[in-house]
Design a protein around this nucleic acid. Structure first.
Lengths: 140, 140
DNA sequence: ATGTCTATTGCAACTAAGTTGCAAAGTGGA
DNA sequence: TCCACTTTGCAACTTAGTTGCAATAGACAT
């Protein structure tokens, strides 16, 4: 077993997620890929694993703070690995960037939100902050 | 013909959108409703108008700066009437707020974005900035 | 009024993301 | 080994949004 596999199993145990075959494979792929991904990306990478299993696996990962979701407006929910700085569920408030040409989605370093004029008695619990434009590769 | 109808026709002519029966009805509904809405909302309100027509109508409105879209993560694209302050297509960078309980989506007053550390050679063209939590009505 | 041209609308079929119920397979403990 | 519980695969389904095409309506010239 490679050190990568051990690493991944460790990550899963740390979050009390039982390290099954599928979960190990998926998490390993995510770590190695390093970018935000959709379920279709996973379906392509693992054509023997059923998509319902993939959705369920990711839901489990999300509930256990291994990944967070980003709705980048492409019609497919994207997932990104949580860093140590996004452990608590209130702490996903970083911006994301989606390239309109290649469709790739990136997490941006944590930035303080400006103070936002909310209507009275509104409470913010979460956010989905997506900037769109061109990434380095596509910005001619 | 009510003054509201004239108003709506005027709005359409102003943007060089031919004021057809469907467009007048839909735009009037939007103005009177005053909140962000989905195509399902429209389907409910106008059960005789085909959904493909509604989608196309909204696409036309969007292309002519009558509405802008918000992907609030509920799985349905929302639309909101453009105000005078969001005429230019680069100027939709205001935050939106979605109530996680009632699902209602609101435009927030325009707020400057913080300066965001982008990777080198990235360019921002658009944004989709959604805060989520509880609105006044649902915040017990 | 009549005919013509173009844009809009309705219809039906389709695509694709995501969900769900259920049975089969796997895993771990007594 | 046996039992209980969890995970996985399968198939069917739901729902948002799209597309091609034919029918219709509106504008305008004759």
């Amino acid at each position: 077993m490679s050190s990568n596999n051990l690493n991944v199993e460790h990550k899963l145990n740390e979050k009390s997620v039982k390290p099954t075959a599928v979960r190990n494979l998926v998490l390993k792929y995510l770590v190695e890929r390093g970018k935000a991904f959709s379920v279709s990306d996973l379906e392509e990478a693992f054509d023997t694993i059923d998509k319902s299993t993939l959705f369920r696996t990711l839901k489990t990962f999300e509930q256990n703070d291994l990944v967070h979701t980003i709705d980048d407006g492409t019609g497919k929910l994207k997932y990104a690995l949580c860093t140590s700085s996004c452990n608590s569920s209130t702490d996903h408030q970083h911006f994301h960037f989606t390239c309109q040409k290649c469709g790739e989605t990136f997490c941006l370093p944590k930035t303080e939100l400006p103070s936002i004029e909310l209507p009275p008695n509104f409470a913010i619990l979460e956010s989905n902050l997506v900037l769109k434009g061109l990434c380095n590769d596509c910005n001619t």
